[in-house]
């Protein structure tokens, strides 16, 4: 809790005690923590001086906010129109199968989380998957395993270096 308070202190600065800052604040917290925990939302409610239920109501209204932690490598499968028509759903299913988690879930080792997103604007490269900040164009179910393997060993090397 103390740790959380410290992390939030940078975001909840006195000049932002304003209702119109609520969504930007939640966005920043999610950017920092990867998700919105009940404790974080309550802290924001106290700060902006509105009920916790209102903060929760607003956070759950918008697709951007998540309430479970993000994996080390967040996997986002685009389900926009172009991706759907090009077989995006099969890619999403293959991803869920390969990671052995449900959509919106996270692997037990917290390496990967899986989400569906509605269009990242790369329709010409459909279907696309975004892992970390890289876009993988023209995905197919057989390519899923290959892509996941390419992401994971790279991260292991990185952590060894550090």
């Amino acid at each position: 809790m103390e740790e959380l308070k410290q992390q939030l202190a940078e975001i909840l600065t006195p000049d932002r005690k304003d209702r119109s800052q609520l969504i930007p604040i939640l966005q920043q917290i999610q950017g920092k923590l990867g998700y919105l925990s009940p404790e974080a939302m309550l802290a924001v409610a106290e700060f902006v001086e509105i009920p916790g239920s209102t903060v929760y109501g607003i956070a759950t209204f918008y697709n951007q906010f998540r309430f479970t932690p993000l994996g080390k490598h967040p996997v986002k499968v685009c389900m926009g129109t172009a991706c759907h028509l090009a077989g995006g759903k099969l890619v999403l299913e293959a991803m869920a199968r390969e990671l052995d988690i449900e959509v919106s879930g996270i692997t037990p080792d917290h390496d990967f989380s899986l989400d569906r997103v509605a269009c990242i604007g790369c329709c010409a490269l459909a279907p696309v998957v975004v892992i970390d900040d890289s876009v993988y164009p023209r995905m197919t179910p057989p390519k899923v395993e290959e892509v996941l393997v390419s992401v994971k060993p790279a991260s292991q090397e990185q952590s060894e270096k550090q």
Partner: peptide, 25 residues
């Protein structure tokens, strides 16, 4: 700049203003 938080309905003008005000869009 006001950043949206991912709600298609925010494209509707009256809903968009609610979002800028920090409310459910």
């Amino acid at each position: 700049i006001a950043q949206g938080a991912g709600a298609f309905v925010s494209g509707a003008e009256t809903a968009l203003m609610m979002a800028i005000e920090g409310k459910r869009s």
